[in-house]
């Protein structure tokens, strides 16, 4: 088996796979289970200042080419959320995802994490500014602009010393400028990206919109080509690491994402198609592919597509 371990902000992780935020991340038990099933790093469900119930269901509906989800950030709030995660002991990295209405809220959330940092055992903070379907947050609050990204990044960096990942949207044009703005404001990595959209499904029998919120972010196979393109151009423009998230469902998909320039690969919707075993399976597929094709190190794959036109 080829060693595909890598480094993630000072922690050695067994592979470059990262559980995307919003999937299986409500409880410590499921996050640990994802690690046991072969994931290198896990991201919590996004935590907000106050508890949130989220949208009414259906929260996830299947389409012909992926999932439409509109969860609406259900979470117990940052205080309870951090208690749940306190004292992370797994070898795999823990990323705390936060979501705020504005830069001020992001700053407050970061300050709370900074206070709990010692006991927490987290490797990084991820700020989501790209949700396509929650009023008051992300794209619906205009957080995707360069100005807003700079402001939010600054606010978080001022309040915590933990490495910061900015999670951008594949839905807005100008992703390269957005990533540059984040880098210049001090972000330590870019996660490209969130679900695409929002999209909408009409149930023709009920003449009614789905998911329950009326629209939702598209994830899964359909969005992979867009994520790949975004990762390719972002990784060319910035010097900080890139997490490539969007439609990865196999080892070959992960290799493709890394060749586009991703240092790490986000996996989320694959859990729907392959179950929680997806992480271990994709990890094995990556090393099998490398072995078959004569690659010895991940380094030889990351950004490999950039040397050729």
């Amino acid at each position: 088996m080829i060693d595909i371990s890598t480094e993630f902000f000072g922690k050695k992780i067994k592979n470059p796979l990262i559980l995307a935020s919003g999937v299986l991340g409500v409880t410590r038990g499921t996050l640990e289970s994802v690690c046991e099933h072969g994931c290198g790093a896990v991201t919590t469900k996004s935590l907000s200042l106050e508890p949130k119930k989220g949208h009414e269901g259906p929260n996830i509906v299947e389409t012909e080419c992926g999932l439409l989800n509109a969860m609406g950030y259900p979470n117990p709030g940052i205080d309870t959320g951090l208690q749940e995660l306190n004292g992370w002991k797994m070898d795999d990295a823990l990323i705390i995802s936060i979501v705020g209405k504005d830069a001020k809220e992001f700053g407050q959330l970061a300050a709370k994490i900074e206070l709990a940092k010692k006991e927490l055992g987290a490797s990084a903070v991820e700020a989501v500014i790209s949700c396509p379907h929650t009023p008051g947050y992300g794209m619906m609050a205009g957080q995707g602009t360069c100005g807003s990204i700079t402001e939010i990044t600054n606010a978080i960096k001022e309040n915590t010393k933990l490495p910061l990942i900015m999670k951008l949207s594949p839905s807005v044009p100008g992703e390269v400028a957005a990533a540059k703005a984040a880098e210049q404001a001090g972000a330590d990595a870019i996660n490209m990206g969130n679900s695409l959209g929002p999209g909408m499904k009409i149930d023709i029998n009920r003449k009614s919109r789905l998911p329950g919120f009326g629209m939702g972010g598209l994830s899964g196979p359909a969005i992979k080509p867009i994520a790949i393109r975004c990762v390719y151009f972002i990784s060319e423009a910035i010097g900080i690491p890139v997490i490539g998230t969007g439609g990865v469902n196999s080892g070959a998909d992960a290799i493709e994402m890394m060749m586009a320039g991703a240092n790490y690969v986000g996996v989320g919707t694959s859990v729907y198609y392959r179950g929680i075993g997806a992480f271990g399976e994709i990890s094995n597929e990556i090393s099998d592919w490398m072995k078959m094709n004569g690659y010895a190190k991940l380094k030889d794959i990351v950004g490999a597509a950039h040397s050729k036109k």
Binding site: L24, G25, G54, T269
Partner: peptide, 9 residues
């Protein structure tokens, strides 16, 4: 919530 093993609720 999702009923299909994705959201973790």
């Amino acid at each position: 919530k999702c009923g299909t093993g994705v959201c973790g609720s």
